[in-house]
Nucleic acid binder design. Sequence first.
DNA 1: GCCGTTTTCGGCCCGACTGTTTTCAGTCG
Length: 575
Amino acid sequence: MKPIYNTDIAAAFDEIADFLEIEGGNPFRIRAYRNAARTIRGLGPELKNMVAQNNDLTRIPGIGKELAAKIIEILETGSARALTKLQHRHPKTIRDILKLPGLGPKRVRALYQDLKITTLEELIAAARKARIRMLPGFGDAMERQILEAAEKMAVSKTRFKIGDIQSCVGRLKNYLEAVPGVGQVVVAGSYRRAKETVGDLDILCSAPQDSAVMDQFAGYQEVDRILSKGATRSSVVLHSGLQVDLRRVEPESFGAALQYFTGSQAHNIAIRRIGSQKGLKINEYGVFNLDECVAGKTEASIYRAVDLPCIPPELRENRGEIEAAHEGRLPKLVELSDIKGDLHIHTDYTDGRDSLEEMILAAKKRGLKYIAITEHSDRLKIAKGLDPPKLRKQMEEIDRFNAEFKGITVLKGIEVEILPDGQLDLPDEVLGKLDLVVGTIHNQFGLSKEKQTERILRGMDHPHFTFLAHPTGRLINEREPYKVDLMRVIRKARERGCFLELNANIRRLDLDDIYCRIAKEEGVLVAINSDAHRVEALAHMGFGIGQARRGWLEKADVLNTRPLAELLRLIKQTM
DNA sequence: GCCGTTTTCGGCCCGACTGTTTTCAGTCG
């Protein structure tokens, strides 16, 4: 049987929830499945390993006796009887219809039971024959909307990489801030939580009721179409395909609204539950004791009302941050200003665009105290990887820069290929002359998990190995991570005293937040690097910091927050 | 189906917008 991962189990629970919804099942039971699916997706360790080690699954929040039994059933048999039964009762394709905007369980059930519609094709056909408008609760407008949405379904909605929408967000924010009467404008939602991708943009502004901000928003030049428009809430889709929701609130509610619209949903539900235990009602307008508003102007006031310190947005995923806040052990998260250097940089010696001098000057301008030049190695021909003579030439040039430039130190490094047999792609005597050796994988992604893991572990055993670059090789929305047992990699790093990278490139963000947190718990330092191939890309560091903060990393957990002397000492210990 | 420092039963976050209604259900975030 194929190995079953957390994503498979989460998908099974979501499928159960979908079918139960269509059947009109108990909404709280459905929510329990959805909560569990979300929790399992965000879980670091694989459930199959936890079960193998006899861990008590009911200790995971949202997993009780029943769901724990179903998890084990899925791991052992590949499915759950409860799911199989549902699959026998309903065609699988009905779930596609549930995904259409505007169609929830009630309407899907009506379509299914009254018109026997079970596929998108049948839905489109029925809409064209004007049969849908006949159903109670449906009408002309709804039928039109359904037809449009169903036809567009083929164009699947992918999430946007956070780095890709930066400039778009800046333009829109400036535009809204210029509307008369508008005070603060804050982009909330998953963007504020620094998630690697955002599905849509949630913008919050403070403005009086008679403000023109909603009209101005709907008239913004990048708007493609308007989904809804009201006095306090509007939604549009930009030409880029990005959906933007704007919320307007009065200044005295701004903190409450910001807390609410930053999410995550799971975090907010947990906070509201604590509120209700204290007899408080929490909504986007404030915290209410009966009808009296007791908090709302600032975010901190909301948390104070439930006896908690303000929790940084990046932690708000209901992954233990509320318990940590309650017990006074919230981490003091790493900040961009803590970063002293960048240990993964390319130049035009290989596949970078800018020269060594340009990269050094740009790094110095950003206030970095040190950088490491880490070109590709010989075997990576596609990136003009350096052979020993070319590397020596670059090392000499770096020596000249170090003699000339004050205020920044340039370290000599290499991003060396870990070959399929675990050997490094340059002779030991060459590697031994460098300040640091960054191991990496750029080919043979298809190896089995066992072989890929062995390959990497063997590479890490090399005496000159400093850290593993982009440890999973994933490209967000583009390429799955290669199969590798990261827990073994993390433990090897601890055992060897070497490090792992959080590659801050917006396509990578690798390690991700979950494994950053595991690395921290295992006592392995993380190096946050830009992997810049041109001067502007040095700014990607900020996205790496966002991801690191989501992974609970503090200054002390990050290798390149160290002053140069300490950094060199730590690196030397690996060699 | 989960959960409990009042509870092992009876709760389970909460409000805006839309479209179809004639006071509200469904959907969404």
